[in-house]
């Protein structure tokens, strides 16, 4: 199967990079894969389900702190600690999602932003565990390769999960909620459950990535772990690449990371301004993102092919419905 071969080659290629790359390149790639992963996670709840969240960083921060505490106080191996960070983030997202997903549109977006600010305040105040504003120090990481492999693994898993989602009835239910939640409800879709499932997925992976991040930078403090900037970067990556698509977050994440590096290297003083201008231009001229532009040029296959494939070779039609 050429498709499986392609996936295998891509994974092998990505996995082999640390064998030839130096630490600077690895750092850049870790950051790229990290934000691409965060973009994929955001894409599930916001791109597919249509619930624009400005607060998924809450779960990134929870994952970062969980992993840091487990590593420092209980000497847990960092990959397990990162996984535990994801699990706690997912567990926490159940009650939070139950409450927050009652809000819609801008109210949900602002509500999630508020939630992340509350989380940051708790991290400041809960000194016995978080050491407040001083932050938690972890042992320094000397070998970046394992971090790189972990982040790439998570990002690749998210590409796979999104691809499955895009070709599943669960994915269609999420899209239906995005398009018309009341209409979906009246067709028998348990919208509360579907939204919650999407929300948990969009919390688990940022939690894992937060845990890896804590290990990677060897330091966690409230301001960086719950930084709105982290959410905004993921959101811009998805919007640039194409929300509610399989390849959008990857296209956006890679484009964004490369541009950020180039702009930063060439225009060290105004690179953030140029970056902002670029985002505005993209939203104005490519409101559906690069993935849509690529599709129109035939460079990228249209998404959600599973129904079309089945419909292309149907059983013979009968005149009346069952």
């Amino acid at each position: 199967m050429p498709r499986a071969l392609l996936v295998g080659l891509a994974l092998a290629g990505a996995g082999a990079v640390p064998l030839v790359a130096n630490n600077y390149v690895l750092s850049v790639l870790i950051s790229l894969a990290m934000f691409t992963g965060l973009a994929y996670a955001w894409n599930i709840i916001s791109g597919y389900t249509g619930y624009l969240s400005f607060g998924q960083v809450t779960f990134f921060g929870v994952g970062a702190y969980t992993a840091a505490v487990l590593i420092i106080k209980l000497h847990v191996a960092w990959p397990l600690a990162a996984l535990a960070g994801g699990l706690l983030a997912a567990l926490l997202s159940l009650p939070l999602g139950w409450i927050m997903l009652r809000l819609r549109g801008p109210y949900f977006a602002i509500g999630m932003l508020g939630l992340s600010r509350i989380a940051e305040r708790i991290a400041f105040a809960w000194e016995p565990v978080t050491d407040g504003g001083r932050g938690l120090y972890l042992p320094p990481v000397l070998d970046l390769r394992a971090v790189y492999w972990a982040v790439v693994l998570v990002a690749a898993a998210l590409v796979g999960i999104t691809s499955l989602l895009d070709n599943s009835r669960f994915g269609l239910r999420l899209l239906a909620i995005r398009e018309d939640e009341g209409g979906a409800d009246n067709l028998g879709i348990n919208t509360t459950l579907a939204k919650l499932q999407a929300f948990v997925l969009s919390a688990f992976f940022p939690g894992v990535l937060g845990g890896i991040y804590a290990w990677h930078v060897s330091y966690v403090d409230p301001v960086t772990a719950f930084a709105t900037q982290i959410d905004l970067t993921a959101i811009v990556a998805v919007l640039l690449g194409g929300a509610g698509t399989v390849w959008g977050p990857l296209i956006g994440g890679v484009t964004l990371s490369v541009l950020a590096e180039v702009l930063w290297a060439r225009f060290p003083f105004i690179h953030t301004a140029l970056f902002g201008a670029l985002v505005i231009v993209t939203v104005l001229f490519l409101p559906k993102g690069l993935a849509d532009a690529f599709r129109q040029r035939g460079w990228l296959a249209p998404g959600r092919a599973f129904l079309r494939r089945l419909a292309a070779r149907p059983a013979p039609l009968e005149a009346a419905p069952e």
Partner: peptide, 26 residues
């Protein structure tokens, strides 16, 4: 109240729970 950005076939399929996908599409 259709799901505007979804195809007609996707509109038809999205909410159906019973049956295999092949049966549903059929």
């Amino acid at each position: 109240r259709l799901f505007g950005e979804m195809t007609v076939l996707e509109n038809m399929t999205a909410a159906v729970r019973e049956g295999t996908l092949r049966e549903v599409v059929h």
